[in-house]
Simulated scan of single mutants.
Amino acid sequence: MADFSANTRPFAELDRAGRTRRLRRLAETALTAYAVPVARLTPLGRGANTTFRVDGADGHRYVLRVQRPDGPDVSRVRSEMRWLAALGRDTDLVVPRPVPTRERDLVTVVADPAVPEPRTCVLCHWVEGRFVDERLRAPQLYAVGAFTARLQLHGSRMSGLDRGRVDDLTDFGRAQVDGFSDAVVERAVAAADGDPRVRAALERVRAVRAELGCGPDVFGLVHGDLHQENYLFHRGGVRATGFDACGFGHHAYDLAVTLDALGPRPALREALLDGYRSVRPGTATTDPTVLAAFIGLRRVQRRLR
């Protein structure tokens, strides 16, 4: 017998499957904002947001993302979509291509009585490819490195977008003018129970950030979360998804995320850097000391969030 009590339980008490069922109805409402004939809607299990594969009656496939309530606000999600749209216009890099609504907006906000708060939704064209992890090979990481460099070159030319910093330590740091002020660092160290290793890591990255500066050769709009679950391969080429964490930061931070996720696989790590240097040779971004400092920052962020 079906458990009808699940329909009346508070949203916060539901497991992931239960929340997805509630959000499916919201997703169906969101899709009415688009000129896309929907044949089938299938939940996808990847990522912090709730996503659905949309099979269109037009033969095309899409992804609908229902933004988590504690994620970027509407303005920042719209800016993410603007960057993706610009990448589609200006480059041959394969990334999700936003689908505008009937009103020509890149986002839609939808409310449903069964969900506590309105949700920001976006629709993008499906990116074909396969994710690889343990079977990653050096040529693939070389391609990821070159892709990352080209993505950063384009991001350095983007302006006027409402996206935050990728190197924010905590919610408190995100709300400050200087996300690495003494007050922010002290709160971060306290949140880590006073661990001296956290303080040392933050002091190292503060010094590196100050030395690098924020010129377009080392700083700009970056993906910010390019690990194995956000890059995929198709017919020998690399593609990227998962841009919801994109923001402004040092290019070395972007590389550090990918390196840290690879773990102790030196051949893959070196291939990544070789691919990057094939597009952007001679940059301070690939200096080992710089990368080590940003890897330390990434690990502190993961510990504190």
Rank of each mutant, 00 (worst) to 15 (best):
P118T: 00
P118C: 04
R119V: 11
R119D: 07
C121M: 09
C121I: 12
L123P: 09
H125D: 13
W126C: 11
V127R: 09
E128L: 14
E128C: 10
F131W: 03
F131I: 12
V132Q: 00
D133C: 04
E134R: 07
R135H: 08
R137D: 10
R137Q: 14
P139E: 00
Q140I: 01
Y142V: 11
G145Q: 02
G145A: 01
A146F: 07
T148M: 12
R150I: 10
R150H: 09
L151D: 15
Q152W: 12
Q152V: 10
L153K: 15
S156D: 12
S159V: 15
G160F: 09
L161N: 08
G164D: 10
V166G: 13
D167L: 02
D168N: 11
D168P: 00
L169N: 12
T170F: 06
F172T: 07
F172N: 05
R174P: 15
Q176I: 07
V177P: 14
G179P: 08
G179S: 14
F180V: 09
A183F: 01
V184F: 04
V185E: 02
V185A: 04
V185Y: 03
V185M: 04
E186D: 12
E186T: 06
A188H: 00
V189E: 05
A190K: 04
A191F: 00
A191C: 01
D193E: 08
G194T: 02
P196G: 03
V198T: 12
V198Q: 03
E203L: 08
E203D: 15
E203S: 10
V208L: 09
R209S: 14
C214S: 13
D217H: 09
F219W: 09
G220F: 05
L221S: 06
G224D: 02
D225Y: 06
H227R: 02
H227W: 08
Q228L: 07
Q228Y: 04
E229N: 14
E229I: 03
N230H: 06
N230L: 13
Y231V: 13
R239Q: 15
R239I: 11
